[in-house]
């Protein structure tokens, strides 16, 4: 019976670790919700920062982050899905396949600040794009690429082999089998991966610090070669570097909440999409 007591204690400890996850998550979300909600207003989302960022809203940061996300999707999703198709459908072993796999895994582990350094050295300086939306998008796309590849490949591998055999037996070429049967069946999974990648790109700060982000811009970006403001960088700057950072806490809470909601809504959509796909899946 003594053993029972010890085991009971063990289970309590395990539940505590799970409880800690929920507690931290709840604390961060609730706290920002309570503190940040009063700052949110129509004006907050639709106006520029004013008076040395002590008043006004986050419009340019919101727009900048929107552009960064859109650009990242446009580049990383086609590239990533293409790579996943090759990895799962065409590649038949060999050294290059192994090299690509190692490369994707290594890329996934590269610290975000290193992406920032690379973007500065390559896109900003060597390619002469300057600190710009385009440099930021290219840097973020490279960061999001392994996320898309992994998710898309997993989705493609989950498509039963019987579908492929069925298509081949009817005389389909590999590409016909892929785009008429395999890709449609894998679409929900691929979509989930793409959404996660965008969510990730939206929240990143270090990669855009030296490549795209501006402390303040008086107008919205007009060309891909303009500097942009971005939500995460804006939050960082307001919280630590702006002149009267202790006076603008309410704006910071508002910004943090906006960023959190933006990013987490992407995670939530991805989660729901996955759950729905699993429920509807019939093979």
């Amino acid at each position: 019976m003594r053993r029972r007591h010890w085991e009971g204690l063990g289970y309590v400890l395990l539940s505590l670790s799970a409880g800690a996850v929920l507690l931290v998550l709840g604390a961060v979300v609730l706290f920002l919700l309570v503190q940040g909600a009063p700052a949110l207003s129509w004006e907050f989302f639709t106006s520029f920062p004013r008076r040395g960022m002590t008043q006004g809203g986050i419009l340019p940061a919101l727009v900048g982050t929107g552009y960064l996300m859109a650009g990242t999707v446009v580049i990383s999703v086609p590239l990533g899905v293409g790579a996943a198709v090759w990895l799962s459908e065409y590649a038949r072993g060999g050294r290059w396949l192994r090299a690509v796999r190692v490369g994707v895994n290594a890329l996934a582990g590269v610290p975000s600040i290193v992406f920032g350094l690379f973007g500065l050295a390559f896109f900003v300086k060597a390619m002469g794009l300057g600190v710009s939306l385009l440099s930021g998008v290219l840097t973020l796309s490279l960061l999001a690429l392994p996320v898309v590849i992994r998710a898309a490949e997993e989705a493609l591998r989950a498509v039963p082999e019987e579908f492929r055999e069925g298509a081949y037996a009817l005389g389909a070429t590999p590409w016909q089998a892929i785009h008429t049967v395999v890709l449609p069946a894998a679409l929900p999974g691929i979509l989930t991966g793409a959404i996660l990648a965008v969510g990730r790109a939206a929240g990143e700060t270090a990669p855009i610090m030296f490549t795209a982000a501006a402390y303040y811009t008086p107008r919205l970006p007009r060309s891909p070669l303009d500097e942009v403001m971005a939500l995460p960088y804006h939050l960082y700057v307001m919280a630590t570097e702006s002149t009267f950072f202790w006076k603008t806490r309410h704006l910071q809470y508002g910004t943090a909440l906006a960023l959190l909601v933006l990013v987490l809504s992407f995670y939530l959509i991805a989660g729901l999409l996955r759950a729905r796909a699993r429920r509807r899946k019939r093979w």
Binding site: L22, S112, G203, Y267
Partner: peptide
């Protein structure tokens, strides 16, 4: 619980930084 863990991973690092800084 898995979704919660994933969301924990999804919170942007500036938000963690901000939370740490002010709370």
């Amino acid at each position: 619980l898995k979704l919660s863990v994933e969301i924990l991973a999804g919170i942007p690092s500036v938000v963690y930084g901000f939370f740490g800084l002010v709370v």
